[in-house]
């Protein structure tokens, strides 16, 4: 295992979640689900895993009478994701040189 790769990102959905959250402020559940093309339950379980390691924050509130859930990447999450991306690029470069 190369340094900089984070175990929390070993899934395409989680990589996608972090990719969207690092370039946006708060992203609503429905928007994220449509962007990643996953089901509600699938997204929720991956989000739960990222919340567990404190890479993502959840904000639940009411907009009028409807509940509204949105997510935000924490500073630690953004840092970890950037490191992970760097490590992925490093790996790719190494693979290409071979």
């Amino acid at each position: 295992m190369i340094g900089g790769l984070h175990k929390a990102f070993e899934s395409r959905v989680r990589l996608g979640i972090m990719a969207v959250l690092t370039v946006n402020d708060h992203v609503e559940h429905g928007t994220l689900r449509d962007l990643l093309e996953v089901t509600d339950g699938n997204l929720a379980s991956h989000i739960a895993a990222l919340v567990e390691v404190k890479y993502v924050q959840v904000r639940k509130r009411f907009v009028g009478k409807r509940p509204n859930t949105s997510y935000k990447a924490t500073a630690a999450g953004t840092r970890a994701f950037t490191e992970h991306l760097g490590a992925m690029e490093e790996l790719l470069k190494r693979d290409l040189r071979r």
């Binding site: 990589l15 996608g16 992203v27 790719l92 693979d95």
Partner: peptide, 19 residues
């Protein structure tokens, strides 16, 4: 290599498309 570059391309597209 294929999967890795696929993941990276996917990430780039998502970042672009969402912002």
């Amino acid at each position: 290599t294929g999967a890795l570059s696929g993941d990276l391309a996917h990430i780039r597209t998502l970042m672009e498309r969402s912002s």
